[in-house]
């Protein structure tokens, strides 16, 4: 087991280096001299320019510059935002809980609906329910979620006035950030109304972000269940006269869930991609919206550092899923 963990962990080192290389070189592609860009339209004195080039290490060979960049990154120094002058890392960690809160709710929503839908569709194969689930999930899978968000706003906020259009909570409430997760912070505060406000703000973004994972999980659960239900041991269980519920819940589901767990892990990357769009639509103050805003403000350190951090987060989650998978399924552990 230790060997398995060590190989898997060591495999992410080249990936990490690759992401830093990408982050380092992509920013070089930005047209113009970085220092002059920093100085902005006011222009800069040539002597000062040379001095700054030395300070930032731009007079060094490119590989040395990358080395300097890498060692800074490893110490947690991702530069400062050109707009706010705040360190990129602290801005990221202030906003990240909002994204995690949204992503967690979305994946829970996808699981709570997707798993039962997939299981029932598999049991009642070729029924109207099955066809319905498959049709809806194919549509969900093809959904442009940025449009889906607007349509839900149109229906629930404009037509029925049920949910707010944007933000995380009504501006009436000021909640002291303790954990950064508003659902928890509002419960800890002495304003019960604030919690419901936060919940109402979460509903639409959760549905929007959860739609694609929901479709994928429902489809995957159905096909995994179908495969397992055709196995011999299920027939044995039936022959023994076990109840249908027992067969499905105890015998089939356990084995069917193995591929589903992998798929859920793979959805993490999809979730972050979706979060960028969802946060933009609902003005959700998370890292996705922060990144998009940075692009339009030409705040390159934020773009570079933020993308790197998101990449590292996704990479780490993938690693954890990998390890968890090895834990659930001993066969995986011994292949490498």
């Amino acid at each position: 087991m230790l060997r398995f963990i060590l190989t898997r962990v060591s495999l992410i080192i080249p990936t990490f280096l690759g992401i830093t290389l990408l982050a380092f070189f992509l920013i070089r592609l930005v047209p113009g001299d970085p220092i002059e860009t920093l100085a902005g339209e006011r222009g800069i004195d040539p002597a000062r320019l040379e001095e700054l080039r030395k300070v930032y290490g731009f007079d060094q060979p490119i590989l040395v510059q990358y080395g300097i960049y890498l060692s800074r990154v490893l110490q947690g120094d991702l530069g400062k935002s050109m707009i706010t002058q705040e360190p990129v890392l602290s801005e990221f960690s202030a906003l990240f809980p909002a994204t995690i809160e949204l992503a967690t709710c979305a994946i829970l929503f996808a699981l709570l609906l997707g798993l039962p839908a997939g299981i029932i569709a598999a049991i009642k194969r070729n029924s109207i329910f099955d066809h319905g689930v498959m049709g809806i999930s194919l549509a969900g899978y093809s959904m442009p979620i940025f449009w889906w968000g607007l349509i839900l706003i149109l229906l629930f906020s404009v037509q029925f006035d049920l949910t707010p259009v944007s933000g995380r909570i009504d501006v009436l409430y000021y909640i002291e950030p303790i954990t950064g997760f508003l659902l928890i912070d509002t419960l800890l505060s002495d304003e019960p109304e604030a919690f419901w406000s936060a919940v109402r703000h979460l509903i639409l973004p959760t549905i929007v972000l959860g739609t694609v994972p929901l479709a994928v999980i429902a489809r995957m659960t159905r096909s995994a269940m179908l495969e397992v239900l055709g196995e011999d041991y299920i027939r044995t269980a039936k022959a023994k006269g076990l109840s249908r519920f027992r067969i499905v819940a105890l015998h089939a589901l356990r084995n069917a869930l193995i591929p589903v767990v992998t798929v859920i892990g793979l959805q993490i990357g999809v979730l972050f991609t979706g979060a960028i769009l969802t946060e933009t639509i609902f003005s959700w103050p998370g890292v996705g919206k922060w990144l998009i805003d940075a692009i339009f403000r030409r705040d390159y350190p934020v773009l570079q550092g933020g993308a790197l951090l998101l990449g590292v987060v996704v990479m780490s989650v993938n690693l954890l899923v990998d390890l968890a998978y090895g834990l659930i399924n001993p066969r995986i552990r011994h292949t490498r």
Binding site: T15, L26, I27, L29, L291, I295, A307, L310, G311, M315
Partner: peptide
């Protein structure tokens, strides 16, 4: 490894 749209966004932001 990188979320696909994130990578595309970064590339377009740079180019």
């Amino acid at each position: 490894t990188l979320p696909s749209l994130l990578l595309a966004i970064v590339i377009v932001a740079v180019l």
